[in-house]
């Protein structure tokens, strides 16, 4: 059974208040919600935001007429939760990476201290950590509208039409925002010495 068929079946059962189906749906979509939310609004209060997403999903499940439309609807819920979270200034501030020093082995953000142990063979390489931090900074530096579109397109790999339905703007607007976001991210990465 394909992922789409599986989703349709689970959504149909969960909308009838089947506990196991909803749990399976949670396990399938929670990682997507976590990834999208953390890249849109940061990692603070992530558990609370994911919880809010699934509470809204639970309340709205019975209103879904076409289970095949669930993925787009789900991301729409995630995006709405992200929009609400942005209204909280504390969450916005936590997204900003501060005092990142690429010359040292550790990097400090407001979310906490990120570092690696050179003795640990399983630890990520220095360049890998640097690249991840750079991508995080590049995302944080984007305008919110552009960042949302880029996150949905690049990390969630959604189509233009799906993103347009989620964000509630025409497909052409999504394309232009994505174009702008890619250009800004590329410029940022180039300025830090990365040439993707």
């Amino acid at each position: 059974m394909s992922l789409a068929e599986d989703t349709v079946r689970l959504v149909s059962c969960a909308s009838k208040r089947d506990e196991e189906s909803f749990r399976a749906l949670y396990r399938m979509y929670a990682p997507k919600a976590r990834g999208t939310l953390s890249r849109m609004v940061g990692s603070s209060h992530l558990d609370d935001l994911v919880q809010e997403v699934f509470v809204r999903v639970w309340k709205g499940l019975s209103k879904i007429k076409d289970p095949q439309a669930f993925p787009t609807w789900f991301y729409r819920v995630v995006w709405n939760v992200a929009m609400d979270a942005r209204k909280n200034a504390a969450i916005l501030r936590s997204r900003e990476v501060t005092e990142t020093d690429f010359g040292n082995e550790t990097f400090e953000t407001e979310n906490g201290r990120v570092g690696f142990d050179v003795e640990d063979p399983n630890a990520m390489s220095f360049s890998k950590i640097t690249a991840k931090l750079c991508v995080e900074k590049a995302l944080a530096a984007l305008e919110k509208d552009c960042r949302d579109v880029l996150v949905l397109a690049e990390f969630e790999q959604l189509s233009m039409d799906e993103i347009a339905a989620i964000v509630g703007v025409p497909s052409g607007t999504v394309k232009s925002r994505l174009f702008r976001a890619r250009a800004d991210v590329r410029n940022f990465l180039n300025s830090k010495g990365f040439v993707p």
Binding site: V55, A131, V135, E136, E154, F194, P196
Partner: peptide, 30 residues
């Protein structure tokens, strides 16, 4: 090229808190 780079170096997502799944299930279904 940019897409591949971004996906390969996607910022890490913090792990879910302990018992988050059970908490959400309690808040919703149960």
């Amino acid at each position: 090229e940019l897409s591949d780079f971004l996906r390969a170096n996607a910022p890490d997502v913090p792990r879910a808190g302990r018992n988050l799944e059970d908490k959400i299930m309690r808040l919703t279904v149960q």
